[in-house]
Design a protein around this nucleic acid. Structure first.
Lengths: 338, 338
DNA sequence: TTGAAAGCGCTAACAT
DNA sequence: ATGTTAGCGCTTTCAA
């Protein structure tokens, strides 16, 4: 491998000149620059990442800590990851992938200066990783919210607003008895923040809109989804509006409703909270509140890069939910209220 | 951040002693080792990854190039990724994630010495990435097979054997007219190797077992799956055995068969080629040939590490397919033949 | 506009 | 069993 000295020699300049041609951190005359550039690609020169990191204290790598457990919303996670990786490249950074159950990985990559910054997904209310990254010298952005986001940078869909929006929409379209079919019990037990935030918004809006709102946890399996639907209809037979916040269970919920002879979009209004592509690939196009997973991943990178450049303060950004009406919802028993 | 010199000072030894305590590359007396270790965790010392890479020409990072495009078998990809990441940690390596459409990333990470080795997924017959990695100084393992695997390290399920195995099983259980519902047309157009290999095995076995075998490409959407089923039953109404090699389409294929009043496991035998967890999460437990995605990811790492250590030659490892009978298959019109 | 040279923090050959 | 020291390849002051 050619080194910067080889390039300097070949171009008849000093090593620092080559370095500055590469970094653009000081003006270089056109002819010099040309000679250096020619030497660079004649030799196929690539700066050595380790040497660069050692000298500059910059790695051009960010860490992404993602839940790699198989089974839970994998496609959605991939959308976040894709957003992060794509945007990182825009900032000339690569992505080091860490898994959730490798908490010691945080120490390793931050302490060992392997990365310039971190993005962490799937934050729980009382997440053990948060104190670790708060103590690290690298800036971190969380996708999701811990209990106390004070002093941290976070980004997520505003799930509380999404809960309110969904209920408000159902209320306005004449529904009086609504229900949430939500995350699997395990997710709730871990107090994963998005699940609880959505429930909070839903309950508060139900109260202020004067609706009854029931909540069912829902295992993502077909049988789990069937059970949730059956329980719901047994205990609250007057329900005419369902909010589904569980991508994996959604198709099974719809199947079960169909099996029971309930026509979605007529007898029952169903609003999904999920990425748009998921909403569109169901048996009928779903009225949904978009979970813009890829965008959130990109915003996370934007935020972490901003903190890396200037001394931006930490901030929490909650993206406003957008509801799009499609074919799975209709007016309820009370009719139009607007 | 504490440096190795700080540690040496605190422990009253030389820097090299600290280095050797860390690497275990030469014997250290028990008391010395103890003093060094105490100093290390008193200071919270972490070796600087860049410095280490510069001095040792080892990064302890491997690159994983994975298709991050949303939509195609994402959960299965995640299983491969999980296997790679997990096993890499066993070798004290981290994983740098590259995406397929970032071909220049290969140059960047190899030329810049960012990684010790590479694992590449989703290999196409004439993959443009293959010549690049073949020229790199880092060893590479491909998950999948290019047209000409000569001189390359590859690992995959033996899809050709899987195709044969599936057909042989159907033949033995009395089926005479079988069909493949396979990958989406895009995948076939890219000549993704696994799709073609499975078809080849299926056709050759059909010939030697004297069966008729029809092949349908199949878009992963519900409507694509319905169309494939409908076309199949229209053009080959005597079909009693179907092999499905398309995880995403599988549930929709089963739904369509059910809609048409065809009872899977009685009127129609269906064999799925997919990870076992996918086979088990269908409406009925599927007879399947396992795609051991996580294992394959692990083997890929094992192979790449072996090449990194000794001077192992390149090799291609094809894992033997295993068929497990469950409830989706039964004897066909010709009855038991064994 | 360019060059010289001092590190960055570690590893490993060479000594003892 | 341990210490000394010469790099590894780059960035960035300091000088010109």
């Amino acid at each position: 491998m050619a080194t910067i000295d080889d390039v300097a020699k070949a171009a008849g300049v000093s090593t620092s000149t080559v370095s500055y041609v590469l970094s653009g951190k000081r003006p270089i005359s056109a002819p010099t620059r040309a000679r250096v550039e020619r030497a660079i690609d004649k030799l196929g020169y690539r700066p050595h990442a380790g040497a660069r990191a050692l000298a500059s204290a910059r790695t051009n790598v960010i860490a992404l800590m993602a839940p790699l457990r198989v089974g839970v919303n994998v496609p959605v996670i991939m959308q976040f990851v894709a957003g992060v990786v794509t945007r990182a490249r825009d900032f000339d950074h690569d992505v080091l992938l860490l898994t959730q159950d490798d908490v010691s990985g945080l120490d390793r990559v931050t302490g060992g200066s392997m990365v310039d910054a971190l993005v962490m997904m799937d934050i729980e209310a009382d997440d053990p990783r948060v104190p670790l990254v708060a103590a690290a010298k690298q800036p971190t952005v969380l996708i999701g919210l811990p209990q106390d986001p004070e002093g941290l940078s976070c980004v997520d869909l505003d799930f509380e607003a999404a809960g309110r929006l969904a209920v408000r929409h159902l209320a306005r379209t004449g529904h009086t008895d609504v229900a949430l079919i939500g995350s699997p019990p395990e997710v709730l037990q871990r107090h994963t923040s998005y699940a609880e935030r959505l429930m909070r918004g839903l309950r508060s809006q139900a109260t202020s809109s004067g609706l009854t709102a029931r909540v069912e946890a829902c295992d993502s399996s077909p049988s789990g989804a069937s059970a949730a639907v059956d329980t719901l209809l047994a205990t609250a037979p007057d329900t005419t509006g369902i909010i589904v916040h569980n991508e994996a269970a959604l198709p099974h919920v719809l199947s079960r409703l169909a099996e029971r002879g309930i026509v979605v979009g007529a007898d029952m209004s169903v609003i999904a909270v999920c990425p748009t592509d998921v909403a569109l690939s169901q048996r009928i196009p779903m009225t949904s509140i978009d979970l813009p997973a890829e965008d959130i991943g990109k915003v996370a990178v934007d935020m972490v890069m901003a903190r890396l450049e200037g001394d931006h303060p930490s901030e929490t950004r909650l993206l406003s939910p957008v509801l799009t009406e499609r074919e799975s919802s209709a007016y309820g028993p009370a009719g139009a209220l607007d």
